[in-house]
């Protein structure tokens, strides 16, 4: 029939054979600095560092705890503490819910009691995967409670920082967490207890400008970005390019703001040695 000529032909959708080679996700990763292809199993063995150039991949809080404390010693504290919405910021509860789902933690820090080489400690580990590891009420409160727990138990405090700075969505309330955590650290100092700060990639903004920089001993991981203002903002402000290596762990070592830059493989033994040195001795009249 003539009118059939004008009829739209019907197509049948044929699904292509789903015999796509099944590559399990995350089998390998590419090193962002030297482009080396690294197999995930190998990466685990090297504690997530590149075996070619030494690049340190970022770690989640859980991964960090696993490679740092004695097996089975970790007792998590305040795991359920979650963010409210002090400014009534649209989208914020949603953003938090998504981050919680993706990371399986309630906010950007995990704290708890643990042992390292048999030495009891209170440990806090920030997680940059959770809203850039930013500090709002929950991070401020958990850091403060970790400090208070260390004072109560009279044990050293170790905090691994990884943060883009203050949680903008909590506004001034975030800013005040800086004063809160530093006030608690002043009490820890009075109690004569050791605080080791470990600066990991990235540590910037309000976290650097509060508890992260106040350690008796400051360690940093190689290549970690550490500073106050992000480099993009500085470049916009001063309208010039920043020198290579600016705001790296090594830059801070040169400028006198960290005690040691320690590769991840030696971090645990370094912490153990420091804890050991602070566990005995000390005289009243020293």
């Amino acid at each position: 029939m003539l009118k059939d000529l004008f009829r739209k032909p019907k197509y049948v959708t044929v699904h292509a054979d789903t015999v796509k080679k099944d590559i399990p996700e995350g089998l390998w990763q590419k090193c962002p600095t030297c482009n080396e292809i690294l197999y995930s199993k190998e990466l685990e063995k090297t504690l997530k560092t590149c075996n070619k150039c030494g690049y340190h991949f970022r770690m989640s809080a859980r991964e960090r705890i696993n490679i740092t404390v004695d097996e089975g010693s970790f007792l998590e504290l305040e795991a359920d503490l979650a963010s409210a919405n002090p400014l009534g910021f649209v989208d914020y509860p949603d953003k938090i819910a998504k981050a919680q789902e993706a990371t399986h933690i309630k906010d950007a820090i995990v704290i708890g009691e643990a042992a390292i080489g048999g030495n009891p400690v209170v440990i806090g580990v920030m997680d940059a995967n959770f809203v850039m590891g930013s500090m709002g009420s929950v991070v401020g409160e958990k850091v403060t409670r970790a400090i208070e727990k260390a004072i109560e138990k009279r044990v050293p405090l170790i905090i691994f920082s990884a943060s883009g700075g203050a949680r903008m969505q909590e506004g001034i309330v975030s800013l005040m967490q800086m004063a809160k955590t530093c006030g608690a650290l002043a009490k820890l100092n009075e109690a004569g207890l050791l605080y080791i700060t470990v600066l990991t990639d990235p540590t910037t903004g309000g976290v650097t400008a509060s508890f992260a920089s106040m350690g008796d001993v400051a360690l940093a991981e190689p290549g970690a970005l550490i500073g106050f203002t992000g480099s993009r903002v500085i470049e916009q402000t001063i309208k010039q390019k920043l020198p290579d290596g600016f705001q790296t762990a090594e830059f801070l070592l040169n400028h006198g703001f960290v005690d040691m830059v320690i590769p991840r493989q030696q971090l645990r033994s370094t912490l153990e040695a420091l804890l050991e040195l602070h566990s005995t001795g000390g005289t009243e009249n020293a």
Binding site: A186, S213, M214, T229, Q247, H255, F257
Partner: peptide, 23 residues
């Protein structure tokens, strides 16, 4: 925020004040 401010420890200066002022 500038090179000199970072080199001389802007974050450290602020944190020190927050800690010391509480006492």
């Amino acid at each position: 925020c500038g090179i000199g401010a970072e080199e001389r420890g802007q974050a450290w200066a602020i944190a020190e004040n927050l800690t010391r002022m509480s006492k």
